[in-house]
Design a binder for these strands. Structure first.
Lengths: 217, 217
DNA sequence: CAAAAAATTTAGGCGCGTCTAAATTTAATA
DNA sequence: TATTAAATTTAGACGCGCCTAAATTTTTTG
């Protein structure tokens, strides 16, 4: 079994390698783990020894099939706990990340399986991210960004690309929640901000920093 | 904030000091923590430096007021999670200890508070142990052992002194669950085993190893 | 009550995950 | 392309929590 720290590295390597595909860089990992590049190098050697990553010195890193399976198990636990925290305990979607970060490392197959059942086997976490399968595969969902939607289209908000509390709280204050239908009525040629109409008849302007981080279908 | 390991020591020191009151011994701690006496000595010095225990070399150890508060916070979290695992996830009372042992170290005041509300602010865990208050005090409950009940008395099973899965499974198989009413109809003068009648009209003999570990009122 | 036994602490060391400083490799640029 | 800059790795160290072996203190007992 792998340590708390190893699990974190795997999870982060997975996240980075999907964000910008290709090899993941040591410096990027150092930033994400809030450690120094030297510490990352040490850990990469260890993960490579355990066959969890492909690692050529100075050339960045890629998960092996087994490494990816492990990473997805951690991500599955993380997202199931987030669902629990929001749906059962009433936390806001901007409050759950750090707590789930701890809960995700509790290793009991039975716990995860029962939690999944208790929650009704959810397919998505509170941010709209898909929950990996028990077998360790990530459901592939294709969403567009709101910034790519044309005038006149009506779409539903399905997820977010940015998970910071600040961003999520901004969405809350704007009334832009998951499942919310929005119709694009205008796109400013000046700053690419978007005017949208909500089902509540309200309309508002959404900055391009926001539209670039909103996933819709 | 205190480490995972320090929290465990505090919890165990609390448990041992209530079981046999007076100072807790280094060897006893070594056995409970599954480490060696030398390791315990190291940790005791550290806990003493942090003012969590009273520690005179070679003389055993006692929690300070602050140490006890911290211990009870951990125990509160442990027992609340046990309630969750049994009542919400459907685990058996014999399965939850190890998992709660991990969950208890997740430090979020808000999480504990919301969990408590979600569970309906339970007063007892699945083994009948009282749940410490948020302020860090242990409710004092006085129960008798079934081995101290006289013939003819009818009592209710309120808790257990032994928490091993084997013992709890034995109780399950015997139909001796928490809240169960039992009437003592005979006590063997030979081996102190007790014949009890359950509300289900069944009757059975209970060995003194069992009666000594069953709490009733 | 002195010697043996038991309990406890100290000394020195180890693996984990981290660090800083220095060496090395790769990428950028004059 | 030669040189500088940036990224990465290695060397050596540290705190944590643990270990074994040896020293010390307390307890037991002949």
């Amino acid at each position: 079994m792998h340590s708390f720290t190893e699990e974190n590295y795997l999870k982060i390597i997975y996240a980075l390698s999907t964000r910008q595909n290709g090899e993941v860089t040591t410096n990027a990992l150092a930033e994400m783990t809030a450690t120094k590049a030297a510490s990352v190098s040490d850990m990469l050697r260890k993960l490579a020894d355990k066959q969890l990553i492909h690692y050529k010195k100075y050339q960045g890193v890629r998960l092996t099939a087994e490494g990816e399976r492990q990473a997805l198990r951690v991500i599955r636990r993380h997202r199931l706990w987030e669902v629990f925290l929001v749906q059962k305990l009433g936390f806001g979607w901007d409050q759950v990340h750090d707590i789930a970060e701890e809960l995700e490392h509790i290793r009991s197959e039975e716990l995860v399986s029962r939690l999944d059942t208790f929650l009704g086997s959810p397919q998505f976490d509170p941010h709209g991210d898909p929950i990996p399968t028990p077998a360790g595969t990530m459901p592939q969902i294709e969403y567009r960004k709101l910034s790519d939607v044309s005038v006149g289209e009506e779409v539903t908000i399905m997820g977010v690309l940015e998970h910071s509390p600040e961003f999520l709280q901004h969405l809350d204050r704007s009334g832009l929640t998951l499942g919310c239908a929005v119709k694009v009525s205008e796109i400013s040629s000046f700053d690419k901000s978007v005017q949208v109409h909500l089902s509540s008849e309200k309309s508002l302007f959404v900055s391009c920093e926001v539209t670039r981080n909103l996933l819709v279908n």
